[in-house]
Computed example of a mutant assay.
Amino acid sequence: MSRQFQTGCTIEVEHSDESLHAHVALDGEPAMRPGDAIQVHGDPIHVAFGERRTFRRTATVTRASWIERTWTRLTAGLEFGELYDVSFTPRRTL
């Protein structure tokens, strides 16, 4: 089984008085486990104050090894389904 796979994703970003957040939803909603990492690819996202926008991107999911999952559970102290990492990587421009 491969430790990495690519999938599409939807990113919702809000920048307002009520909230400043970014939510990532992976296509097909694959089960995420402690220590798994998601890297979202594409151009930088800019949302002006008072806006809420939705973007489509490609993401790479890297599955944690057994030891990484165990270590994450032991050190984080959070619920099982809440332990994963999301990062955004802007596309390089020449």
Score class of each variant (00 low, 15 high):
Ala22Gln: 08
His23Ile: 06
Arg63Cys: 04
Leu83Glu: 13
Phe80Leu: 11
His23Arg: 13
Leu78Cys: 12
Ala37His: 08
Arg53Cys: 07
Arg53Pro: 01
His15Val: 06
Thr60Glu: 00
Glu12Ser: 13
Arg53Gln: 14
Tyr84Thr: 02
Ala25Met: 12
Ser19Glu: 13
Glu68Asp: 08
Trp71Ser: 05
Gly81Leu: 05
Ala37Thr: 08
Ala37Leu: 06
Thr75Gly: 09
Thr62Met: 03
Pro34Cys: 01
Arg33Tyr: 13
Thr62Ser: 12
Pro34Thr: 02
Val86Arg: 04
Gly42Ile: 00
Val24Asn: 00
His15Ser: 06
Glu14Pro: 04
Thr54Ala: 00
Val47Lys: 02
Asp36Tyr: 05
Ala31Asp: 11
Arg57Thr: 06
Arg91Tyr: 05
Arg69Met: 07
Pro34Lys: 05
Arg52Met: 09
Leu26Glu: 01
Glu68Arg: 05
Ser2Ile: 10
Ala22Glu: 03
Ala76Asp: 11
Gly28Gln: 00
Arg56Gln: 11
Asp85Ser: 14
Thr89Arg: 12
Glu68Pro: 02
Ser19Pro: 04
Asp43Leu: 10
Val40Phe: 00
Arg56Ala: 07
Ser65Lys: 07
Gly8Met: 07
His15Thr: 05
Val13Phe: 14
Glu29Ile: 09
Glu51Lys: 08
Arg73Ser: 09
Ser65His: 12
Arg33Met: 12
Arg3Ile: 07
Trp71Cys: 06
Glu79Ser: 15
Glu14Thr: 12
Glu82Ile: 03
Val86Lys: 01
Gly50Val: 06
Ala59Gly: 04
His15Pro: 03
Ser65Phe: 07
His46Asn: 09
Cys9His: 01
Gly77Glu: 09
Ser65Glu: 11
His46Glu: 11
Leu94Phe: 15
Pro44Ala: 13
Phe5Ser: 00
Ser65Thr: 15
Arg56Trp: 11
Gly77Asp: 09
Leu20Gly: 06
Val40Pro: 00
Pro34Val: 05
Glu82Phe: 11
Arg92Trp: 06
Arg63Lys: 07
Val61Met: 03
Arg52Asn: 06
Gln39Tyr: 08
Ile38Ser: 03
Ser16Ile: 02
Ile45Arg: 09
Asp85Leu: 12
Gly35Cys: 01
Met1His: 15
Arg91Pro: 01
Leu83Pro: 04
Ser16Asp: 02
Ser65Tyr: 13
Phe49Arg: 14
Glu12Cys: 07
Phe5Gln: 04
Val86Ser: 00
His46Lys: 12
Phe5Ala: 03
Ile67Asn: 10
Thr10His: 03
Asp36Glu: 10
Arg56Ser: 10
Glu18Cys: 10
Ser16Trp: 00
Gly35Arg: 06
Asp17Asn: 10
Gly8Tyr: 09
Thr58Lys: 12
Val40Ala: 04
